[in-house]
């Protein structure tokens, strides 16, 4: 298949960026989207041109490294997958594909499609943990947890921290990301003990880093590759009210 790619190129955080057009003439529908970019980069290097920089690592949808806007959607047009799992069979011969980095003030562009997501880590440093020292844990089965609660906690805990929710939100809100961690711990007896301090510190840090408020639009839920539910945000709000 033949594709026209319009890719955002930006030398560094301070430089002005812009779209550059690339013609791809031999894209196989069996390729993964990132493998299509690999093929383009191979060609660029052979022409002694700088390849397109993008984050990627596990290429099996779990590390959360990859992420780019593809035709107006974070991680592309197919729901519930990360960019690395997007197959070229979802594109049509002759199509023009627009590829951009996450656009959000708290995620400044580093180069091309790579953005700085350390703000997410900073929120987790603020309170995304249960304070227990190594060796101090009780025997595991002394903490029984209702299966339903444990399963729900797991559903929240599968967040990969890719940042699609922030990129999808018109307010660049990190509420879905923060609520996933808050929910995981709020649902477990181990996490209840520090629930109050945790929600205060994480929300405070989130605000300080310039993430916007939730507007209840639901774009985050619609675009989340791991299908984290917006009901997590409701739980975050409840935890937050309880904490003051």
């Amino acid at each position: 298949m033949k594709l026209t790619l319009k890719i955002w190129r930006q030398k560094n955080a301070k430089a002005a960026g812009g779209f550059v057009t690339y013609q791809m003439n031999d894209v196989s529908p069996e390729m993964a989207f990132l493998e299509m970019l690999d093929a383009l980069n191979k060609k660029l290097v052979e022409e002694d041109k700088e390849p397109i920089a993008f984050d990627h690592d596990c290429r099996e949808g779990i590390c959360g490294s990859c992420g780019m806007y593809i035709n107006g959607h974070p991680h592309g047009p197919v729901p519930a997958i990360t960019t690395c799992h997007l197959s070229m069979r979802f594109f049509k011969d002759g199509e023009t594909v627009w590829i951009e980095p996450w656009r959000a003030k708290p995620f400044p562009v580093i180069r091309d499609l790579i953005v700085d997501r350390t703000a997410f880590d900073k929120i987790q440093f603020a309170g995304g943990f249960i304070s227990i020292n190594t060796g101090g844990a009780p025997e595991a089965n002394l903490i029984p947890v209702k299966k339903e609660d444990s399963d729900n906690a797991f559903d929240s805990a599968v967040c990969v921290g890719c940042g699609a929710c922030v990129a999808a939100c018109k307010n660049a809100s990190a509420m879905l990301f923060v609520s996933a961690k808050i929910s995981q711990f709020a649902l477990l007896p181990q996490g209840r003990i520090e629930a109050r301090d945790r929600v205060r510190s994480m929300v405070e840090k989130m605000d300080e880093l310039g993430f916007g408020n939730c507007s209840n639009t639901g774009a985050c839920e619609a675009e989340c590759p791991k299908e984290i539910k917006i009901s997590n945000i409701a739980r975050l709000n409840r935890e937050f009210y309880k904490a003051y």
């Binding site: 903490i143 444990s150 805990a157």
Partner: peptide
């Protein structure tokens, strides 16, 4: 296993 459970790792139950 004790440690991860205490850290809130949601193992299957």
């Amino acid at each position: 296993i004790d440690h991860f459970t205490a850290l809130g790792v949601p193992f299957a139950r």
